[in-house]
């Protein structure tokens, strides 16, 4: 197994862990971290798989840089919302997706 493939396989595992985390965890901070884990997994696959014959390919590196910027922005927004939610209600989870209903339905 080449080192590129090893990175890609690790990326797959990390992505799956992150995906599971976002969907299964309750605590908002953990879910936000899990989302970042998902992103890291995808970046690892992007850079790992693209290494043909040992020479790195610059295009996926540029993509990963862009992806990191996007992930930082998304994380900042998520953290801001989580802080506001905590300030308003004192809670740090919003319930499993789909289970919580509005106040009157």
């Amino acid at each position: 197994m080449s080192s590129g493939l090893l990175y890609a396989a690790t990326g797959c595992v990390i992505f799956a862990l992150g995906l599971g985390g976002v969907m299964l965890l309750d605590h908002l901070l953990r879910r936000i971290l899990a989302f970042n884990l998902m992103g890291s997994g995808a970046f690892l696959v992007l850079v790992g798989l693209a290494q043909r014959d040992g020479t790195p390919d610059p295009v996926p590196q540029a993509m990963v840089l862009t992806g990191i910027v996007v992930a930082v922005a998304a994380t900042a927004l998520a953290l801001t919302l989580a802080r506001r939610w905590h300030a308003l209600t004192g809670r740090d989870e919003i319930g499993a997706a789909g289970k919580q209903r509005g106040p009157d339905d």
């Binding site: 990326g11 992505f15 696959v45 693209a50």
Partner: peptide, 9 residues
């Protein structure tokens, strides 16, 4: 994004 990574690979 993960799909894009696999396609690029």
């Amino acid at each position: 994004l993960f799909g894009v990574a696999l396609l690029y690979g």
